[in-house]
C-alpha cells in the first residue's frame, strides 16, 4: 500500500512495519502519560518508598543495623521483589486493555486505522518500561545502601535484576490476558491479584505435595530472584541452586504465550 496525499496536504501513512512500530510507540507514550498522571502511580511510588524505608530503617530501630555482608544485604532487599512485581502487574497492566472498553475510549481508538496488535504492543511496552524503571530504582537504592553499609555491591544483584525483569514480563502477560477478557477494570485487578498470589500458590503447593514437577509455575520460578544469591541466612534456609536458563525460559514462555492469547482475544473482542 502506498502513501496518499489528502486535500489537507499531509501525507497519509502507509501500512508498513515502520508505521506499525510508530503507532505502538505513540500508544506506549500515551500509556506512560496515563500512568504518570494517575493516582496509581502515586500509590505505587509510595509503596516502593515504604518498602525501602522499612527494610532500611527497621533493623536500626531494632538495634541490630543492616548486615555488613553485601550478599546478605542484597538478598534481604531482593526477597520482596516478586511481590512488588506482582503488585505492579495487578495495579497497572491488569486494567490497560479492559479500560478502553469500560471507559468507552475504544470508540475513539478502535475506529482509527490502528491495528489492535499495535495497541497491545504499545500497552505491553509501556507496562514494561514503567515496571523496569521502578525495578531499576529499587535495585539502585539497594546498591547504594550496600555500598554505604557493606562497602561493596554483590555482582549477583545484576542477575537478580535480569530475572526480575523477565518475571515482570511474565506477570504483565498474565495481567494482559485477564484484561483482554474482563468487562470491568476492578474485576480484572482482583482476578489478577488472586490468580497471582493465591491460585498459583495453591496449584504449586498441591503439585509439590504430590511430588509433581512445579518448577514451571511463575510463583515457584520467581523464587530465583532471591535464590540466585545462594544465601542461607545462617544455614536456617537451605540454599537453592538456580537454573538460570530454565527460570528465564519459564518467565519468557509464560509472558509470550499469555500475551499471544491476550492478542487473539483482544482482536476478536467487539465493542
Amino acid at each position: 500500500m502506498s502513501e496518499t496525499q489528502n486535500s489537507n496536504n499531509y501525507t497519509r501513512m502507509n501500512g508498513g512495519i515502520v508505521t506499525y512500530l510508530k503507532q505502538s510507540y505513540v500508544v506506549m507514550k500515551n500509556e506512560i502519560v496515563k500512568f504518570t498522571r494517575g493516582k496509581k502511580m502515586l500509590l505505587f511510588t509510595a509503596l516502593i518508598f515504604l518498602v525501602l524505608i522499612l527494610l532500611t530503617a527497621v533493623p536500626y530501630i531494632l538495634g541490630e543495623g543492616l548486615s555488613d555482608n553485601a550478599t546478605e544485604l542484597a538478598a534481604s532487599y531482593s526477597s520482596f521483589i516478586a511481590l512488588i512485581v506482582l503488585l505492579f502487574a495487578t495495579l497497572f497492566a491488569s486494567t490497560s486493555l479492559v479500560s478502553e472498553f469500560e471507559e468507552r475510549t475504544a470508540l475513539i481508538l478502535f475506529t482509527r486505522p490502528v491495528k489492535k496488535s499495535s495497541i497491545l504492543l504499545g500497552k505491553l511496552t509501556a507496562s514494561m518500561v514503567i515496571g523496569i524503571a521502578f525495578l531499576a530504582f529499587y535495585y539502585v537504592f539497594t546498591s547504594v545502601v550496600s555500598l554505604a553499609v557493606a562497602g561493596s555491591v554483590d555482582a549477583t544483584l545484576l542477575t537478580s535484576f535480569g530475572l526480575a525483569v523477565l518475571y515482570l514480563f511474565c506477570m504483565v502477560g498474565i495481567a494482559l490476558l485477564i484484561s483482554s477478557v474482563m468487562k470491568k477494570g476492578s474485576t480484572a485487578t482482583i482476578i489478577t491479584f488472586v490468580m497471582s498470589l493465591l491460585i498459583f500458590s495453591i496449584v504449586s503447593t498441591l503439585l509439590g505435595a504430590y511430588d509433581v514437577e512445579n518448577w514451571w509455575l511463575p510463583d515457584i520460578a520467581s523464587g530465583a530472584i532471591y535464590d540466585v544469591f545462594g544465601f542461607t541466612f545462617g544455614g536456617m534456609i537451605p540454599a537453592v541452586t538456580v537454573d538460570l536458563v530454565q527460570t528465564s525460559g519459564v518467565f519468557i514462555a509464560w509472558g509470550l504465550i499469555t500475551t499471544l492469547i491476550a492478542y487473539f482475544l483482544f482482536k476478536r473482542r467487539s465493542f
Binding site: T4, N6, R104, I108
Partner: peptide
C-alpha cells in the same frame, strides 16, 4: 478507515 472520521455513540476520552 484511513480516510474516515467517526463519532459512534457517546465516546469518552
Amino acid at each position: 478507515l484511513l480516510t474516515v472520521g467517526t463519532v459512534v455513540e457517546t465516546p469518552e476520552f
